[in-house]
Nucleic acid binder design. Sequence first.
DNA 1: GGCGTGACTATGG
DNA 2: ACCATAGCCACGC
Length: 130
Amino acid sequence: MTKEERVAFEAAVYDIVKMIPPGRATSYAAIAKAVGYPKHSRMVGRIMADCNSAVSSIPAHRVVNSQGVLSGKAAFGSSGEMQALLISEGIIVKNNRIGAWNKVFWNPMDEIRLSASEDPISGKHTLSRQ
DNA sequence: GGCGTGACTATGG
DNA sequence: ACCATAGCCACGC
C-alpha cells in the first residue's frame, strides 16, 4: 500500500462514516469492503482510533465490530460515552452490544456504489462514485 | 528486517 | 452463546 493509497483509503473511510445515518451503525469490515480493501478492517479501526471524533465531527460511535459490539468504547471515555451517544439516537445497547443488530446495521454498499476495483496492470486501486 | 500490537473477522468446537 | 485459533496488515520499535 503506497502512501497515496493510504491517504485515499483514510479519506474514503471518513466519507463513509460521515454517511452513516443517526440511529444506525455499521462495522469495520463493511467499511473496509466498501472502500475496496476487504482485508483492512483493522486499519479502519486504527483510523477511528485516531480520528478524535469529538472534534472532527466524524460519528465514530456509529462504527462497531461485526457482531454489533462496542469494541471501541474505550476511546470515548470510561463512563460509557459511546453507549450514551448511541442510545441518544434511539439505539438499544446492552452489555456493550447493540440490540437488533441486523436492523440497526447500515450497509454502505446499499447506499453508495463504489467501483472498488484494482487495475490488473498497474495494481492501482480506484475508488469512483457512480 | 523481525516482532509485538491492535476500535478486526470467520470459523470450528 | 462463548472461547480459542488462525489469518489479516500497517505501525512503531
